[in-house]
Design a protein around this nucleic acid. Structure first.
Lengths: 151, 151
DNA sequence: TATTGTTATACTCTATAACTATA
DNA sequence: TATAGTTATAGAGTATAACAATA
């Protein structure tokens, strides 16, 4: 018997994690730190509170990640122009370069993945994974709404 | 512009993680421990060395996971019948029940996922995700073969 | 000599709670 | 009074290295 669709998707999740871990190794970066850099690249200079919301993680956790990324020269803390309690975190020029390369690699990976699918199946797969993502999103949203009602 | 296929797949990975974390919460179980129980359910009573290979994790790590699962009553350590160095880890009856329920929930999730895809797209999606999994598998295998050559 | 599991140590990610400085 | 960030503390997952008992 062939594996269930859900098992294929879980297998793909697992392989993505391995592939990304491999891509970072030797750079001193970790998945959580790369995620923060990715968020920063898209959001631009941000307060740690904003980063905590975007990463769906506690502010305390952001302190630790920013400490590490500051020590490795990937981000800088600068004073907030109007709020003296806050700091702005921004990518350093080297990190901007690193993230640009990473985004190129990301696009290359996308291209090879699309090519791995038979041409006549591509449109259906695009529709299918969009539907799957939407369905899962609603499942998770429903569960988290319920847990807010019974905390 | 619509998101890249790879971004959809990453989104699905992320949603799976959230959904599973939600499913375990309140049970005292964690993703790593459930994974070990899952492996144990499929492999049957195993030595910790075998579990380390199956989970792709160090033997030391298995010691910790088995300690925790033994304390929570999910697994038992029994002496190996022929090798006095080794122990056999096996599921307790309650854990067997828990895993059976989990497998049923897994099958239900698969059914709702398949239903979320338009009927005329289902066959193409099944073929597509199989091709994607195979392609990623070969990418990861190639990378790990290369890293064994340059350690 | 090689293998099984464990002790010792360390690092990363994560969380909550209490505290400081500012709004 | 509320918000931004940090210190303090804790637990889970992971790894390497050294060691005991057994093969």
């Amino acid at each position: 018997m062939e594996p269930l669709l859900v098992d294929r998707l879980l297998q793909i999740s697992d392989l993505f994690q391995k592939d990304m871990a491999r891509a970072f190794e030797g750079t001193g970066l970790t998945p959580a730190r790369v995620h923060l850099l990715w968020v920063l690249q898209h959001a631009g200079a941000s307060t740690q509170q904003a980063l905590a919301r975007l990463c769906e993680v506690t502010p305390r956790n952001i302190t630790g990640l920013v400490d590490a990324l500051e020590a490795s020269g990937h981000v800088r803390r600068t004073p907030h122009p109007t709020d003296r309690r806050a700091v702005l975190v921004e990518l350093t020029p080297t990190a901007v370069e690193t993230m640009t390369r990473m985004q190129e690699e990301h696009a290359r990976l996308d291209a090879t993945l699309v090519q791995a699918i038979a041409p006549e199946d591509r449109a259906a797969v695009e529709r299918g994974v969009s539907a799957l993502a939407a369905h899962l999103e609603s499942l998770v949203a429903a569960a988290s709404a319920e847990s807010r009602n019974t905390p």
